[in-house]
Write a protein that binds this DNA or RNA. Structure first.
Length: 493
RNA sequence: GGCGCCUUCGUCUAACGGUUAGGACUCCAGGUUUUCAACCUGGCAAUAAGGGUUCGACUCCCUUAGGCGCUACCA
């Protein structure tokens, strides 16, 4: 039997980082087993629908290289089209199917019409809570006779369809990650299946779609565990074969609550916008709740396809640690070749306003800057702070900063002037770090490294910390270097 | 409140019932460096508690505690 997995988000605006992990796990299982991975959009709640969210979701899958075997995809014009035979993959396109299914359930006495209003339900709930009872639907409409039901429907009374949960008995199932789990039917609510607006709820729609799409393994977040018995009952009510369920541990805030906007970025887009690399994000989230059982921590998508296994999925929730994310990202940044890193950094550089449209001859210079920044970046959006000295001179540093440990103001002026006199004789064409070093080596041999390199570095960068001065000088070029040295000397005078 | 799930360093995690409980991030120290970063070396740091079972328990069983999730005509 071919393995078919799916990811089924609702298009409410952005993709949650935890959602991406769920999708990744499902994708990995499909790929590892020569199965198929399906995307389905669960947009049955019209009040929460956000235009463009589905397109956005599809784009993100593309960015992360998680190709879809079936599901909505974008054509060249950016319009949503269906790929695969078991769709439609957007639930709002097939509400008739859910309605028909609900009616079938009623005919088989597995569901019933309910005419209770939201106000009544609210009142009922409040009452139960006051009495210390578990808040549940009181099943007032569960045993209405057919005639009355017909009459009320014909009279135009609004209704919902509810699942007729058995009054007793237990459901037991074997969760892929948690093992045997058991629930008592008598504690379950008569879940609404069809809302009064005629749209299905999640519970009805998932079961129907997972069945029609022949999903074999349902891997979803742990928050769905309590509704699984309802879903199982629905499968049985329809007479359908059960898929395998697996409930993934939650992603947590540092305070161990469910990962939320209040504490961290939750949208995948946010991480991309900050300059976390695609490889970093994949590698990081896959390890939040899974590990290969070895010391290996760096994984490519290809390696993950090899190594991933459901058995090694963790049961406990995992705290999302940004510090470790940063470390991983700097690791991947260091591994990039300059060519690729430059093109990744360019959009961030433009964002800072340091460059606009760059010309062909500027590109080599940008590459040098990127090469010099590579080891210093945790995130690509830090490029502004790291590289601004190459574009704009800092004028606001204090003159004291120029003076190396044991040196004095006057000795520093002298050293800077000596440096300047050496550099002034070098042609701009030859202004590279080897040449500069050749010129300066006698001087440093005489007075030492600190008294020379320190003030030079500060003069060029205007910062307390920076890359080595000759590296900066090479990128800046003769004219700017001499200018900045002059400015430093004036500052001291 | 009810139901369910979970519990190894601060965090992510490893450990056929037999290890000085391992690795990574963070943090600290040292080295390297003109500075910072990077890099290298080293260090701090954990089996929630209590009972069993066993020659032997992180590992199996029970109890307690704590955490989290769900408890909608949202998903």
């Amino acid at each position: 039997m071919q393995i078919r997995t799916r990811f089924a988000p609702s298009p409410t605006g952005y993709l949650h980082i935890g959602g991406l992990r769920t999708a990744l796990y499902n994708w990995l299982i499909a790929r590892k087993n020569n199965g198929l991975f399906i995307l389905r959009i669960e947009d049955t709640d019209r009040t929460r629908f956000v235009p463009g969210a589905t397109e956005n979701l599809i784009k993100i899958f593309k960015i992360f290289g998680l190709e879809l075997d079936e599901g909505p995809i974008l054509n060249e014009k950016g319009e949503i089209i269906e790929k695969g035979d078991s769709g439609p993959y957007i639930q709002s396109r097939k509400i008739d199917i859910y309605r028909a299914a609900a009616e079938q359930l009623i005919k088989n006495d597995r569901a019933y019409y309910c005419f209770c209003s939201s106000e009544e339900l609210e009142l009922n709930r409040a009452e139960q809570i006051k009495n210390g009872e578990p808040p549940r639907y009181n099943r007032r409409c569960r045993d209405l006779n057919n005639k009355e039901v017909q009459k009320r429907i014909e009279a135009g009374e609004p209704y919902v369809v509810r699942l007729k949960i058995p009054l007793q008995g237990k459901v037991k199932f074997n969760d892929l990650v948690r093992g045997e789990v058991e629930f008592d039917y008598s504690l379950l609510d008569d879940q609404v299946l069809l809302k009064s607006d005629g749209w299905p709820t999640y519970h009805l729609a998932v079961v129907i779609d997972d069945h029609h799409m022949k999903i074999t393994h349902i891997l979803r977040a742990e928050e769905w565990l309590p509704s699984t018995p309802k879903h199982i009952y629905l499968y049985q009510a329809f007479g359908w074969e059960l898929p395998q369920f697996g409930h993934l541990p939650l992603l947590l805030n540092p305070d161990h609550s469910k990962l939320s906007k209040r504490h961290a970025d939750v949208a995948v887009e946010d991480y991309l916008a900050k300059g976390y690399l695609v490889e970093t994000i994949i590698n990081f989230i896959v390890l939040l709740g899974w590990n290969p059982g070895t010391d290996q921590e760096i994984f490519s998508l290809q390696e993950l396809i090899q190594e991933f296994s459901i058995e090694k999925i963790q049961k406990a929730g995992a705290v999302f640690d940004v510090k470790k994310l940063d470390w991983l990202n700097s690791y991947y940044i260091k591994k990039k070749n300059i060519e690729e890193l430059t093109s990744l950094i360019l959009p961030f550089l433009k964002q800072t306003g340091l460059i606009d449209d760059l010309t062909e001859e500027e590109l080599p210079k940008i590459r040098k800057i990127v090469a010099l920044s590579q080891d210093r970046l945790k995130r690509l959006n830090e490029i502004g702070e790291v590289a601004s000295m190459f574009f704009n001179p800092r004028l606001d540093y204090s003159s004291d900063l120029l003076i190396w440990k044991s040196e004095t103001k006057s000795s520093t002026i002298k050293n800077l002037e000596d440096i300047k006199n050496l550099f002034i004789n070098i042609d701009n064409r030859d202004f590279d770090k080897q040449r500069l070093n050749e010129k300066i080596v006698d001087l440093t041999a005489k007075v030492g490294n600190g008294p020379i390199f320190w003030p030079l570095r500060v003069a060029l960068s205007g910062e307390k910390n920076s890359p080595p001065p000759l590296e900066i000088a090479e990128i800046l070029g003769r004219k700017k270097v001499l200018l900045r040295i002059d400015r430093a000397i004036n500052k001291l005078k």
